[in-house]
Design a protein around this nucleic acid. Structure first.
Lengths: 343, 343
DNA sequence: GAAAAAACTTTACGCGTGACAAGATTTATT
DNA sequence: AATAAATCTTGTCACGCGTAAAGTTTTTTC
């Protein structure tokens, strides 16, 4: 342990009394060297606490053991949770994960692309910004690096897409709400950043029409990623001026719904599906905290575990096939209604 | 734009008609080359869309422009938000930030250390796991890389510490609650992972004694990072068996408090500081969502912006001084009571 | 217009590793 | 024990860039 510090593989090889290429082979695949050699190397690792420089390794390897993960906004708990799941899966599969966030900015997403190109990853799991993405940079990146898109689809970009079936989400929630009370209006941002939002609005409208009902959308102002605040402010406005067409509100996502709940509380409106409640509020995504809102939020989502697992598997397939699929596939996981007290 | 792809600086230099060392100089400092040269290079960058490989750059530079940020658990919104702020500051200062999460696991924290060593960062902002950290690996890392600890202090480790003054936090909240109603009990995990928790408990006890009151702590079971759930389950238990010694609960942190609020709602207990409320609940940290709980959470915190700004400044100082301070400083930001409706 | 200064080019080496080929040594097979 | 097979060593090049020294060209200065 207290040996002089080893600076590189050459010095480590000398300290082992084994040649550098053999050491290199060992680190690439420990079973590729003779057992006695392996034991000598492992003893020396213990003694000198040496580990190869990860970035130097990747610079020259044909196939790296790196996977890039890019999310649009890491401070959003939904992406925090998804990213954590994805990273864990990658590690379990013997890959190293590099997590990058665009922080909601086009420039930073492009930066992330550059970084990943330099890292030469075996593959990338990418949730693009969407409307804010630079499409040229995005599609060029996907041409150079084997990429699976997730969460947010951009048609034709990437080798595959894995995400949510917005239609299933919306038909489940719309139908449930319409069946158990007043038909819901759809509460969303006027200019949503998330491509799913638009699909969700359309699906809501289609679901309502299929039920023989007239769609009612409530579109609120606001820009950026402070969705709870945007939801809160928007809700305060519509509650104040009484422009809500129904007592049942279906929010485009859970973060808006959390803001809506806060506004209802502020206004003294009791939310819930039980008697004595003035309103029903539901969301989408099954946000990590939606279990702990007051009342707990009725929402629609899918198991993070299952979806991240599938996304990672899809990427591993892609990597095995050399980075190209014959045709682009879109896998959309359908919804599971999560019935809680809010609606 | 549609030129043949440039693979490296050599090829780019050839395409420019300028020597590689000059190109290298340009990327290191654009003003270090003649104006006419700069323009030629910039025109070529436009044309070929070339950018140097970030990792190859750092491998050999004396001083890199890299800053490492390590957090214990990125899916925790508090750390998500802090990390976002820190990254932004680093970028503004012309550095590149590399964000790593230990995901609550000792092994992954050690992995993060290895990665950062390989990256040869100019400096590192590190929020250690705390109880779960491997102290040997941690202090060895801090010896090798200029490091500023933040959020969680480990005495003697790192060149400086920047974080919260837990005593100020607790004295403010305890005093306020005692003054405006029943004295608070302190609600916390029996075996908290966060070093701040222990300091907070002590400060609570000291504050109560200073007020001539007997401290009352409620310690709940639970392991891991699902703090809302742990808080919820713990609250359900104490509410069920009536073991709460007072109607005012001061939670060790906001995430536990969010769980507590959910339990109160479940039990039909109205929370707030107004008449007609059965309980008061307060937290600590000013969690990004504490504004949107029902009722909005009274808590104690400091401006994320101010603290991250100071932490980054501190690290820049350290970098300028060559990576060593003469003596280790501990900067603790004092609290600001955030009065909302819950207490 | 000559001298001085600045900017550039050429050449060469370094960083820490992967990869490959040729030969030497060890182990397994018969 | 002889042979084949597996494993290892030695040597060399590659990756994409930083850096330094020495020589050349361009620009500035007076």
């Amino acid at each position: 342990m207290n040996q002089p510090k080893i600076r590189n593989m050459e010095a480590f090889a000398a300290a082992c009394g084994i040649s550098r290429p053999t050491i290199s082979k060992y680190f690439h695949d420990a079973t590729s060297v003779r057992k006695s050699t392996r034991e000598r190397i492992e003893a020396a690792i213990e003694e000198y606490d040496y580990r190869p420089n990860i970035f130097a390794i990747d610079q020259n390897r044909r196939k790296t053991k790196n996977i890039g993960i890019v999310v649009p906004y890491l401070a959003d708990p939904v992406f925090g949770e998804i990213a954590r799941n994805l990273e864990r899966r990658c590690l379990e599969a013997g890959f190293r994960a590099t997590l990058l966030s665009a922080h909601g900015e086009q420039e930073l997403e492009i930066e992330a692309f550059d970084r990943l190109k330099a890292l030469r990853p075996a593959g990338v799991l990418l949730a693009p910004l969407g409307r804010q993405s630079n499409l040229d940079a995005l599609s060029q990146f996907c041409d150079e690096v084997p990429t699976v898109l997730f969460d947010r689809n951009i048609p034709g970009v990437g080798q595959a897409f894995v995400g949510s079936d917005n239609e299933s989400f919306l038909s489940q929630s719309t139908e449930y709400l319409a069946r158990t009370g007043e038909a819901p209006c759809f509460f969303e941002m006027k200019h949503p950043l998330n491509p799913n939002s638009i699909a969700r609005r359309r699906s809501y409208q289609a679901s309502m029409k299929a039920l023989g009902l007239e769609p009612m959308t409530v579109q609120i102002d606001g820009e950026g990623w402070n969705l709870e605040e945007i939801g809160y402010e928007g809700a305060m406005q519509v509650l104040q001026n009484g422009s809500l067409p129904t007592n049942t509100v279906l929010c485009s996502n859970d973060r808006l719904a959390i803001g809506f709940l806060a506004a209802c509380h502020q206004k003294g409106l009791r939310v819930g599906r039980h008697s004595g409640c003035a309103m029903r509020v539901a969301g989408h995504d099954d946000h990590p905290f939606s279990r702990f809102t007051c009342p707990p939020l009725t929402t629609v989502g899918h198991d993070y575990d299952v979806v991240s697992n599938y996304g990672v598997e899809c990427l591993f397939n892609l990597i095995e096939k050399g980075g190209r699929f014959e045709s682009r596939t879109e896998t959309k996981f359908s919804a599971r209604l999560v019935l809680r007290d809010s609606a």
